[in-house]
Design a protein around this nucleic acid. Structure first.
Lengths: 118, 118
DNA sequence: TAAAACTTTGCAATACTGTTGCACGTACTC
DNA sequence: GAGTACGTGCAACAGTATTGCAAAGTTTTA
């Protein structure tokens, strides 16, 4: 199961939701995939993205990814097809926060139209 | 009803979820507030923020806000108290997207600890 | 002013995603 | 072969968002 889920994520260049992964199988329970993804996440194999569509999406981490603030990159959500792309070469810019605010994490989702949908 | 909801949002400096607004009333239906907020949103009085907590939050727009890409600002979610602050003086940085991607909108949520929680 | 038209509200029900409890089955260990 | 650990599927539940419908309230119109 873990191998299969991993392969599905590997094949895709985009981030997939639990539901989308489920669709790739004939007869596998949501909960099974859910727990597989959770295992992956606990072991830093994947990262999850909340792109605001209501469904969390998952994508493989790079080999050297530690899922720490330094590794954060931007995600792109296409308003037309709903696909979420990892912009792994675009780090989330560091912001100078107002006095008293400390930085721990960030979520930067850019929305627009992807090349396939123009 | 609209006046009351507006006043609640006006009083708060942070963004409120549907549930939090509901708490401010004694006996008002979620759906009523929901539709009120929707009306506000349709008329560009408020903007909604999905900070990844699972509940969408709402905050008043500035007078001159058009809710267009130029008006986008950063939001800060405190990992301790869960409150979401509008950083209205911090615009979302413009990113040079890869070839073929067009920009329409963005959601930039910074997470950390707010001054009250340190 | 009374009827008609429209708006707002509350209740109930539903959708969707995520999450957990439990039982069964398989595989591994001794 | 008994015992243990793990993975899977089913069913149920949680939380938020959303909609249909009817009753109540408000405005318009003749």
């Amino acid at each position: 199961m873990r191998q299969l889920v991993y392969e599905i994520l590997e094949k895709q260049k985009k981030a997939l939701s639990l539901y989308e992964i489920e669709q790739q199988f004939d007869n596998v329970e949501r909960s099974t995939i859910f727990r597989t993804l959770k295992t992956f996440q606990d072991n830093y194999l994947i990262h999850s993205i909340d792109d605001g569509t209501g469904a969390v999406k998952y994508a493989l981490c790079d080999d050297d990814c530690t899922c720490k603030p330094d590794d954060l990159h931007i995600h792109f959500l296409c308003n037309k097809c709903g696909q979420t792309h990892c912009m792994k070469d675009m780090p989330v810019p560091k912001m100078d926060l107002a006095e008293g605010f400390s930085f721990e994490n960030a979520n930067f989702v850019v929305k627009g139209i992807c090349p396939n949908c123009r």
